[in-house]
Simulated scan of single mutants.
Amino acid sequence: MTYLSYGDAIASSIGLNVASQHANARHICIVQNSRTESAYLQAIQELSSSPLNLPETIISEEPENAMREIQGIDFLVVDWRHKELAAAALRNATFGSRGAVVVCRNGIRALRGREFVRRVTLPVTGGIEIAHVAARNRNSGKTEKGKRRWITHVDQRSGEEHVFSI
């Protein structure tokens, strides 16, 4: 999911659209008005190297209203150049039962007030913050039946698989 205003670069949105098709997921873009929507959809079609299914769009000048309509967000990208709009989107986002991955462009330390599983900040192009935001109703790592969750990690250098129980 992305939030764009008129004239913004759409390269990241094209990438998200391609990824959503490979993952059989929904890609939703919130735009401010119908002028922005038509420019956005036209740019997606012109700049895509292959024919793509166009992303869903929601027209809303206030992203908090649009965010209330969308349930179970797994991946969210916000541009912190539009600080008020991005903050409103983050405040009103309803993440999936396992939390979500949130990417904040052009802003470091933009993700405040949320519980994180893991977070990394990259000081490139204005700053990129990537975080796995915890679900609001976490139950200390236990599943509904009281069993623990297993997390696996494969070391890319050695090929070793590490398994953790939480």
Rank of each mutant, 00 (worst) to 15 (best):
E115Q: 14
I108W: 06
T121A: 12
V102P: 10
R114A: 02
H82C: 02
G96W: 04
G126E: 06
T121H: 04
R138V: 08
A134D: 05
E84S: 14
H132N: 08
R136L: 13
R105Y: 09
V78H: 11
R114C: 02
L111D: 01
E129G: 12
R109L: 01
R118S: 04
P123Y: 03
V133C: 07
R112N: 02
T94G: 08
F116S: 03
V102D: 05
G96Y: 11
V117H: 08
A134F: 02
H82V: 00
R136K: 15
G107K: 10
G113W: 03
V133W: 04
F95Q: 07
V102Y: 05
A87I: 03
L122C: 07
P123C: 04
G99E: 01
R81P: 00
V103N: 15
N92S: 15
V102W: 05
G127W: 07
R81K: 13
R105V: 00
R114F: 07
A131F: 05
E84W: 00
L85S: 14
A86H: 12
E115D: 13
F95I: 15
S140H: 05
A93N: 03
A110M: 13
E115W: 01
H132F: 10
N137L: 14
T121C: 10
L111M: 11
N106M: 09
G126Q: 08
V117N: 05
I108V: 14
L111V: 01
R118Y: 06
I130C: 15
V124Q: 13
C104I: 15
N139K: 13
